[in-house]
Amino acid sequence: MIGWIKDIYQTIFRFVRFPCEPETVAIGNPDKSSPILVTCNFDYTVRHLKEYLEKEGLDCFLLVVNTNGTNVWCAAAEGIFTAETILSHLKVYNVGERVNHNRIVLPQLSAPGVKRKALKEHGWEGIYGPVYFTDLKEYLNNGFAKNKDMQALEYGYWERFKMGLSHSVFCTLVCILPILIFASDWWIQGIALVWYFAFSMQLIEHFIPVNRLLYKGLALSLPVLALLLTSETDPVLKIQASMGILALSAYIGFDAQGHSHLGQNQQSGKLFAGIFAFSALVYGGTLLL
């Protein structure tokens, strides 16, 4: 029950770090030849990984490396999950004394941060395991061999939904104050728009035929703008609301780079700043009318 509640808030607030105790855990009844698996001390992953390993009866050592609660992918990209941190963990917890081999199974998503050469220089052989830990049983039973499915990163609707939820909550926290200041009479609609953009950026972005997430965000604003322009009669309000929608869609599209599998180097910063400045200027101009 507690795990279920933790799953919900750690999914919603995944932009906050949720660390668990770094440790080296013996799962099942491992002996000196048992495999060593490595992960980060992101509580959500560790709880589910332990549960899986115990359920499948896999005898192994699990190294929960200290990344201050950041997940594997982000920690590797941030440079806080590295060969250096793994070597430090191996040393502090005397892992070498508990096994008769030097092979450690790394999460495949740690590849951007963990240099296997550095591990090798210290006598450890780092091999990348499957992308998803649910393939670990098959991978270990096949003698550390991966098939194509184990190497593929999927971004299915359930994962997109969880990302959308987290991104919506984050964007609401960011946008609530500007919405209350600039659109106090329309704050419910404003927050509804935040959730529409943030969820759509996850759930349907792959149907929008442009590459940059910022463009996808702008494309999502088109039906909302059409609805506004055909239903609202006050010309000043039309312009003000259009600028608000444009700025909001640009922000959420731009910000989605950090929530997406499409990458974080889309070179959209200048364009985003330009759209934001344009919206602010036009909005400011309407105040003089």
Partner: peptide, 10 residues
């Protein structure tokens, strides 16, 4: 994670 938030963290 939010891209803007990541930049703030950096």
């Amino acid at each position: 994670m939010s891209f803007v938030y990541m930049k703030i963290l950096e």
